[in-house]
Design a protein around this nucleic acid. Sequence first.
DNA 1: CTGAAAGCGCTTACAG
DNA 2: CTGAAAGCGCTTACAG
Lengths: 336, 336
Amino acid sequence: MKRVSLKDIAKLVGASPSTVSFILNGKASQMRISDELKNKVLATAKKMGYQPNQVAVSLRTGQTKILGLLVEDISNNFFASLAKTIEEEAEEFGYKVVYSSTENNSKKGVELLRMLTQRQVDGYLITPTVGMEEDIEMLARHKKPLVLMDRYFPGIEAPYVQVDNKGAVEKGMEHLVEKGYKKIAFITIESPMIQMRQREEAYLDAIAKSSAQKKKLILKVNYSGGRETAIEQITDFLKKQQPDAVFFATNYLGILGLESIRAISLSIPKDLAVVCFDDNDIFRLHLPGITVLQQPVEAIARTAIHILMQQLGNSKVPVKKNQVQLAANLIVRQST
Amino acid sequence: MKRVSLKDIAKLVGASPSTVSFILNGKASQMRISDELKNKVLATAKKMGYQPNQVAVSLRTGQTKILGLLVEDISNNFFASLAKTIEEEAEEFGYKVVYSSTENNSKKGVELLRMLTQRQVDGYLITPTVGMEEDIEMLARHKKPLVLMDRYFPGIEAPYVQVDNKGAVEKGMEHLVEKGYKKIAFITIESPMIQMRQREEAYLDAIAKSSAQKKKLILKVNYSGGRETAIEQITDFLKKQQPDAVFFATNYLGILGLESIRAISLSIPKDLAVVCFDDNDIFRLHLPGITVLQQPVEAIARTAIHILMQQLGNSKVPVKKNQVQLAANLIVRQST
DNA sequence: CTGAAAGCGCTTACAG
DNA sequence: CTGAAAGCGCTTACAG
């Protein structure tokens, strides 16, 4: 059962492929094709279930109308929501999105990037990993339509959209200080990526400014050993340092943290207050509810698409800035 | 900055495009091309950063090496894990996966299906929604490589992989009965899809077989009103019927259920025992932990890919059956 | 051992 | 008003 092609239709109605193409692309009147022929072609195409071969169209037009989206991990709530909103927004502009997870593995990330290029995507939306710097720079240098999300490379001039990490951590720290906590720990991961650096810096600044707390208490979890060893690192740290509040720098650290806190039977917030970066069903449903800094996921997605569309010449609304930071939202629950 | 093409390389080394193509596709020795030319071509291709235009390759070969995956909702944990494993498995066979969410909206589902067809995907992996029956049948009739997942249409002869829904609910019900619960309610959604029918039937069978409980207690949540009204329906039902145990038929119902139970301050498992279909971080971290029937997500994904690969003629291991049910895993936690 | 040619299914500038 | 032709970037059967 072969697919119906333009040629098949042309043969059937006795017209040339070009005429059929014009009609099917809505250029019948522009090409002053008779209504009779037009209707005949349209009817035949419908009857035979004609669907254009997009691969051929893409090769010919040089446009695939596909955007490539690379996230860190699609099974992580934050990235899943991001992907979903991006998909919706892209659809408004007639683009489809293909997405893949880099798993924060630079080799995989680079391979995926090449794959997207080979597939001729029209634009790139990327949450870059450590080793992707060169490839991203290449894209930027070649003026490929591109937006980075969640993080970026300070040395590379490329558009990006991320949450205001510094402001977010600041807000969270202020909240803890106001509540009277005096021994606030910060649990993050080993990572040279900018978004983690910004969060850590904001914690350090807050401590430097604080009159009640002089000592910084930072744990950098080494995640390469897997869940169990990560939990061990956290419990060890909590037992040894005995903070009265803890700030988790990412949502998965927060989840690991809750397990750790449970493992050593600390009571939240009596023994230990908890704040986490990123909201999540888990934090909302947890007893007690966990205070979080919610990222403006929809706004990040929408802004990223708008910046990309501008590069593709499809902007409805012109975007002024192409390096954007959006404010996070402090949601106070019972954990603080 | 134009992309480097085969022709460019051919011109540069002074060979014909065909020769370059053979070399780049590893057929140099087969075509008895001199090592000298081969190395020159390879070096030039590398230096110029040549990457084949997959769109052209696809058009020519008729193969895109892309699989289309349609899930209900990529931001739902179950589908996200499914997608992730499918991506990994597909990679083993040299295929990429593009995925999209139908949102259980038949119109969107059908559109996405057409889009995949237009993009010439080599095979389809689909969790079908209600209105997709005709389109799926069309694919099956045209002998397109296809596997349904999680659910299927009884009237259509097509390969599928799903969890053994009946066996799973049976297991859960037996567990509750053994624990001595005598007023077990079942909370599900209005849906004609087979997987929901199977789960409900298994509940009814269990009650029919039971000596302790004669009355069936079923709530079919109408989800169209959104979260809040769904929670209202559940709380009303629980207050009115006062079951001693409740079985949630899907993970999102379970999450809504936990919110409902909290809203009316019931204590788990003292006032009410809870079992849920599908595992989830939330159920694991909840206090008390929620007893679940965990779907064998990895096995479902792997089986689906193997069945699809067999249709595509890439099977390493021949698959015997192409309509498969896999057993769920009862994980007992503190909620029962 | 290597090259010229056809063709995948479209779109579009050109000719009539 | 409509058609023939070129071409997007590849692969591969054919010729020499």
